[in-house]
Protein backbone atom coordinates (compact mmCIF):
# COMPACT_ATOMS: atom_id res chain seq x y z
CA UNK A 1 0.00 0.00 0.00
CA UNK A 2 2.28 2.81 1.25
CA UNK A 3 6.04 2.58 1.16
CA UNK A 4 8.23 5.49 2.23
CA UNK A 5 11.99 5.14 1.75
CA UNK A 6 14.69 7.53 2.88
CA UNK A 7 12.35 10.51 2.56
CA UNK A 8 13.96 13.88 3.26
CA UNK A 9 12.25 17.24 2.90
CA UNK A 10 12.85 20.86 3.82
CA UNK A 11 10.83 24.02 4.32
CA UNK A 12 12.38 27.38 3.49
CA UNK A 13 15.73 25.68 3.22
CA UNK A 14 15.39 24.16 6.68
CA UNK A 15 15.59 20.35 6.75
CA UNK A 16 12.58 18.93 8.62
CA UNK A 17 12.29 15.33 7.49
CA UNK A 18 15.67 13.69 7.74
CA UNK A 19 15.21 10.24 6.30
CA UNK A 20 11.85 8.58 6.93
CA UNK A 21 11.43 4.88 6.31
CA UNK A 22 7.93 3.60 6.82
CA UNK A 23 5.79 0.87 5.33
CA UNK A 24 2.06 0.54 5.89
CA UNK A 25 0.72 -2.69 4.36
CA UNK A 26 -2.83 -2.79 3.03
CA UNK A 27 -5.46 -3.30 5.72
CA UNK A 28 -3.26 -1.96 8.54
CA UNK A 29 -3.58 1.07 10.76
CA UNK A 30 -0.38 2.66 12.02
CA UNK A 31 -0.08 5.32 14.66
CA UNK A 32 2.58 8.04 14.61
CA UNK A 33 3.48 9.76 17.86
CA UNK A 34 6.16 12.28 18.61
CA UNK A 35 6.88 15.54 20.37
CA UNK A 36 5.70 18.93 19.08
CA UNK A 37 7.66 20.11 16.10
CA UNK A 38 9.11 16.72 15.30
CA UNK A 39 7.76 16.76 11.71
CA UNK A 40 4.47 14.82 11.88
CA UNK A 41 2.34 17.41 10.07
CA UNK A 42 5.19 18.03 7.66
CA UNK A 43 5.14 14.34 6.76
CA UNK A 44 1.38 14.48 6.14
CA UNK A 45 1.76 17.55 3.90
CA UNK A 46 4.62 16.03 1.96
CA UNK A 47 2.57 12.89 1.37
CA UNK A 48 -0.44 14.91 0.18
CA UNK A 49 1.60 17.24 -2.02
CA UNK A 50 1.37 20.66 -0.40
CA UNK A 51 3.39 23.44 -2.04
CA UNK A 52 6.37 24.83 -0.17
CA UNK A 53 7.70 21.49 1.00
CA UNK A 54 10.76 20.63 -1.00
CA UNK A 55 11.56 16.99 -1.29
CA UNK A 56 15.31 16.58 -1.25
CA UNK A 57 15.56 12.81 -1.34
CA UNK A 58 13.86 9.44 -1.04
CA UNK A 59 10.74 7.97 -2.57
CA UNK A 60 7.12 7.21 -1.77
CA UNK A 61 5.18 4.54 -3.55
CA UNK A 62 1.45 4.23 -3.12
CA UNK A 63 -0.13 1.07 -4.54
CA UNK A 64 2.78 0.88 -6.94
CA UNK A 65 2.45 4.50 -8.10
CA UNK A 66 5.14 7.15 -7.54
CA UNK A 67 3.09 9.34 -5.22
CA UNK A 68 5.48 12.28 -5.28
CA UNK A 69 5.01 12.73 -9.04
CA UNK A 70 1.28 13.43 -8.70
CA UNK A 71 -0.58 16.70 -8.18
CA UNK A 72 -2.48 16.96 -4.87
CA UNK A 73 -5.86 16.38 -6.56
CA UNK A 74 -4.46 13.35 -8.37
CA UNK A 75 -3.32 11.91 -5.06
CA UNK A 76 -6.83 12.48 -3.72
CA UNK A 77 -8.29 10.72 -6.73
CA UNK A 78 -5.85 7.86 -6.16
CA UNK A 79 -7.41 7.45 -2.73
CA UNK A 80 -5.30 9.53 -0.37
CA UNK A 81 -7.12 11.57 2.25
CA UNK A 82 -5.72 13.95 4.82
CA UNK A 83 -7.77 14.98 7.83
CA UNK A 84 -6.17 18.34 8.60
CA UNK A 85 -4.78 19.24 12.00
CA UNK A 86 -6.21 22.71 11.35
CA UNK A 87 -9.17 22.42 8.96
CA UNK A 88 -9.45 25.44 6.66
CA UNK A 89 -12.44 27.80 6.47
CA UNK A 90 -14.01 28.56 3.10
CA UNK A 91 -16.36 31.54 3.63
CA UNK A 92 -19.55 31.50 1.56
CA UNK A 93 -18.90 28.00 0.22
CA UNK A 94 -21.73 25.80 1.46
CA UNK A 95 -20.57 22.65 3.17
CA UNK A 96 -22.99 20.54 1.11
CA UNK A 97 -21.76 21.99 -2.18
CA UNK A 98 -18.15 21.51 -1.13
CA UNK A 99 -18.66 17.92 -0.05
CA UNK A 100 -20.55 17.07 -3.22
CA UNK A 101 -17.98 18.76 -5.47
CA UNK A 102 -15.20 16.86 -3.70
CA UNK A 103 -17.07 13.57 -3.82
CA UNK A 104 -17.83 13.95 -7.50
CA UNK A 105 -14.26 14.94 -8.30
CA UNK A 106 -13.02 11.80 -6.63
CA UNK A 107 -15.75 9.68 -8.23
CA UNK A 108 -14.83 11.06 -11.64
CA UNK A 109 -11.23 10.18 -10.91
CA UNK A 110 -12.30 6.62 -10.19
CA UNK A 111 -14.49 6.47 -13.30
CA UNK A 112 -17.67 6.27 -11.21
CA UNK A 113 -20.83 8.21 -12.12
CA UNK A 114 -21.33 11.56 -10.38
CA UNK A 115 -24.08 12.02 -7.82
CA UNK A 116 -26.78 14.63 -8.31
CA UNK A 117 -27.89 16.89 -5.48
CA UNK A 118 -30.63 14.52 -4.30
CA UNK A 119 -28.50 11.38 -4.34
CA UNK A 120 -25.77 13.22 -2.54
CA UNK A 121 -28.07 14.56 0.14
CA UNK A 122 -29.38 11.10 0.87
CA UNK A 123 -25.87 9.69 1.25
CA UNK A 124 -24.66 12.65 3.29
CA UNK A 125 -27.60 12.39 5.70
CA UNK A 126 -26.88 8.72 6.22
CA UNK A 127 -23.22 9.31 6.99
CA UNK A 128 -23.99 12.29 9.20
CA UNK A 129 -26.41 10.31 11.24
CA UNK A 130 -23.76 7.68 11.81
CA UNK A 131 -21.45 10.44 13.07
CA UNK A 132 -24.19 12.10 15.17
CA UNK A 133 -23.69 15.36 13.28
CA UNK A 134 -26.58 17.82 13.14
CA UNK A 135 -27.89 18.23 9.61
CA UNK A 136 -27.65 21.99 9.62
CA UNK A 137 -23.88 21.64 9.32
CA UNK A 138 -24.50 20.91 5.64
CA UNK A 139 -25.98 24.35 5.14
CA UNK A 140 -23.19 26.31 6.77
CA UNK A 141 -20.04 27.60 5.12
CA UNK A 142 -17.20 25.06 5.12
CA UNK A 143 -15.79 25.12 8.66
CA UNK A 144 -16.89 28.74 9.09
CA UNK A 145 -17.78 29.36 12.69
CA UNK A 146 -17.46 25.66 13.47
CA UNK A 147 -16.18 24.85 16.93
CA UNK A 148 -12.86 23.04 17.11
CA UNK A 149 -14.60 19.71 17.65
CA UNK A 150 -17.11 20.34 14.86
CA UNK A 151 -14.27 21.01 12.44
CA UNK A 152 -12.68 17.71 13.30
CA UNK A 153 -15.95 15.87 12.91
CA UNK A 154 -16.46 17.57 9.55
CA UNK A 155 -13.11 16.11 8.49
CA UNK A 156 -14.27 12.66 9.49
CA UNK A 157 -17.54 13.16 7.61
CA UNK A 158 -15.57 14.00 4.48
CA UNK A 159 -13.48 10.90 4.98
CA UNK A 160 -16.62 8.79 5.42
CA UNK A 161 -18.01 10.16 2.16
CA UNK A 162 -14.84 9.98 0.10
CA UNK A 163 -13.91 6.48 1.32
CA UNK A 164 -10.17 6.78 0.76
CA UNK A 165 -7.67 3.95 0.43
CA UNK A 166 -5.23 5.69 2.72
CA UNK A 167 -6.36 8.11 5.39
CA UNK A 168 -3.91 10.29 7.26
CA UNK A 169 -5.46 11.71 10.41
CA UNK A 170 -3.39 14.54 11.81
CA UNK A 171 -4.37 14.96 15.44
CA UNK A 172 -8.02 14.50 14.65
CA UNK A 173 -8.55 13.62 18.30
CA UNK A 174 -7.19 16.90 19.67
CA UNK A 175 -9.93 19.08 21.07
CA UNK A 176 -12.59 16.38 20.98
CA UNK A 177 -14.78 15.49 23.94
CA UNK A 178 -15.03 11.84 24.97
CA UNK A 179 -18.21 11.18 22.97
CA UNK A 180 -16.82 12.84 19.85
CA UNK A 181 -13.64 10.82 20.24
CA UNK A 182 -15.66 7.60 20.08
CA UNK A 183 -17.57 8.86 17.07
CA UNK A 184 -14.38 9.69 15.22
CA UNK A 185 -12.91 6.31 16.12
CA UNK A 186 -16.06 4.60 14.89
CA UNK A 187 -15.74 6.55 11.65
CA UNK A 188 -12.25 5.19 11.11
CA UNK A 189 -13.09 1.67 12.24
CA UNK A 190 -16.06 1.58 9.86
CA UNK A 191 -13.64 2.02 6.98
CA UNK A 192 -11.43 -0.86 8.08
CA UNK A 193 -11.08 -3.22 5.12
CA UNK A 194 -8.38 -5.31 3.50
CA UNK A 195 -7.65 -2.49 1.06
CA UNK A 196 -7.83 0.39 3.54
CA UNK A 197 -4.92 1.72 5.54
CA UNK A 198 -4.54 4.63 7.88
CA UNK A 199 -1.81 6.71 9.45
CA UNK A 200 -3.10 8.09 12.72
CA UNK A 201 -1.05 10.97 14.13
CA UNK A 202 -1.82 11.59 17.79
CA UNK A 203 -0.38 12.76 21.06
CA UNK A 204 -2.64 10.62 23.21
CA UNK A 205 -2.72 6.94 23.88
CA UNK A 206 -6.45 7.32 24.66
CA UNK A 207 -7.45 7.43 20.96
CA UNK A 208 -5.57 4.19 20.39
CA UNK A 209 -7.89 2.44 22.86
CA UNK A 210 -10.62 2.99 20.30
CA UNK A 211 -8.61 2.70 17.12
CA UNK A 212 -6.31 -0.15 17.91
CA UNK A 213 -3.22 0.25 15.71
CA UNK A 214 -1.26 -2.56 14.18
CA UNK A 215 1.93 -0.61 14.75
CA UNK A 216 3.06 2.49 16.60
CA UNK A 217 5.97 4.63 15.36
CA UNK A 218 7.78 7.39 17.17
CA UNK A 219 8.83 10.34 15.02
CA UNK A 220 11.52 12.54 16.54
CA UNK A 221 13.77 15.11 14.92
CA UNK A 222 12.52 14.16 11.46
CA UNK A 223 13.23 10.43 11.82
CA UNK A 224 11.29 7.36 12.92
CA UNK A 225 13.31 6.48 15.99
CA UNK A 226 11.30 3.58 17.33
CA UNK A 227 8.51 1.26 16.17
CA UNK A 228 6.49 -1.30 18.07
CA UNK A 229 3.04 -2.68 18.80
CA UNK A 230 0.18 -0.93 20.64
CA UNK A 231 2.07 -1.39 23.91
CA UNK A 232 4.60 1.24 22.78
CA UNK A 233 1.90 3.90 23.08
CA UNK A 234 1.24 2.87 26.69
CA UNK A 235 4.91 3.00 27.46
CA UNK A 236 5.19 6.53 26.02
CA UNK A 237 2.14 7.62 27.97
CA UNK A 238 3.78 6.40 31.14
CA UNK A 239 7.33 7.68 30.69
CA UNK A 240 7.34 10.29 27.91
CA UNK A 241 9.77 10.68 25.04
CA UNK A 242 12.81 10.80 27.31
CA UNK A 243 12.65 7.01 27.55
CA UNK A 244 12.84 6.78 23.76
CA UNK A 245 15.94 8.89 23.59
CA UNK A 246 17.56 6.69 26.17
CA UNK A 247 16.64 3.58 24.19
Amino acid sequence: MLKIEGLTAEVDGKPILKGIDLEVPAGEIHAIMGPNGSGKSTLSYVLSGREGYEITGGSVSFNGVDLLALEPEERAAAGLFLAFQYPVELPGVGNALFLRTALNAVRRGKGEPELDAMQFLKLARERMKALSMPEDMLKRGVNVGFSGGEKKRNEVLQMALLRPKLAILDETDSGLDIDALKIVADGVNALRAPDFSALVITHYQRLLDYIVPDKVHVLMGGRIVQSGGPELAHQLEASGYASVKAA
Binding site: S48, G49, E71, R75, L90, A102, A105, V106, G109, L162
Partner: peptide, 9 residues
Protein backbone atom coordinates in the same frame (compact mmCIF):
# COMPACT_ATOMS: atom_id res chain seq x y z
CA UNK B 1 -4.57 23.16 -0.94
CA UNK B 2 -7.51 22.09 1.21
CA UNK B 3 -9.74 21.93 -1.88
CA UNK B 4 -7.15 20.15 -3.99
CA UNK B 5 -6.54 17.60 -1.23
CA UNK B 6 -10.25 16.83 -1.55
CA UNK B 7 -9.82 16.14 -5.26
CA UNK B 8 -10.72 19.50 -6.83
CA UNK B 9 -8.53 20.83 -9.61
Amino acid sequence: FYCRQRGLS
